[in-house]
Nucleic acid binder design. Structure first.
Length: 91
DNA sequence: TAGCTGACGCAAA
DNA sequence: ATTTGCGCCAGCT
C-alpha cells in the first residue's frame, strides 16, 4: 500500500520543470497547468524564487509573453538568457 | 491562523 | 508597441 502522501504543489512543479527537455522552454502558466493548478502561474514563480534545487532546470521556465523573466543566478554568474541560449533557445 | 510577498498573466489605456 | 493596474495562487514569517 502506498503512503498517503499528497504531493505539494511545489513538488509537482519541480517535477514538471525537471521534465522540460534541454533546448526547450515552458511558461509559468504551462508549468502550473501541468502541475495540476491552472492559473497558478504566480505561485509557480513564488516557488521557483525560493528553489535552491540545482536538479531543477528552473532557467527553462519563462514568462507567457515570451520574456525570459527573472532568475536567482544560482548557476554562477550565468544569466537565464545565457543558459537558455547555451541550450539552443533563441526566443 | 492570518497576513505579506512575489522569478506571473491578462486587459485596458 | 509599451506601460499601468488588477487578479490569481501557493509559500513563508
Amino acid at each position: 500500500m502506498k503512503t498517503i502522501r499528497v504531493a505539494s504543489f511545489r513538488e509537482s512543479v519541480e517535477k514538471v520543470v525537471r521534465s522540460i527537455p534541454r533546448g526547450s522552454v515552458m511558461t509559468y502558466g504551462e508549468v502550473a497547468y501541468k502541475a495540476g493548478r491552472p492559473g497558478a502561474a504566480r505561485a509557480v514563480g513564488t516557488i521557483m524564487s525560493k528553489n535552491d534545487d540545482m536538479t531543477v532546470p528552473c532557467h527553462r521556465v519563462i514568462r507567457a509573453d515570451g520574456k525570459i523573466g527573472a532568475y536567482n543566478g544560482l548557476r554562477g554568474g550565468k544569466t537565464k538568457a545565457e543558459l537558455l541560449r547555451s541550450e539552443g533557445y533563441r526566443g
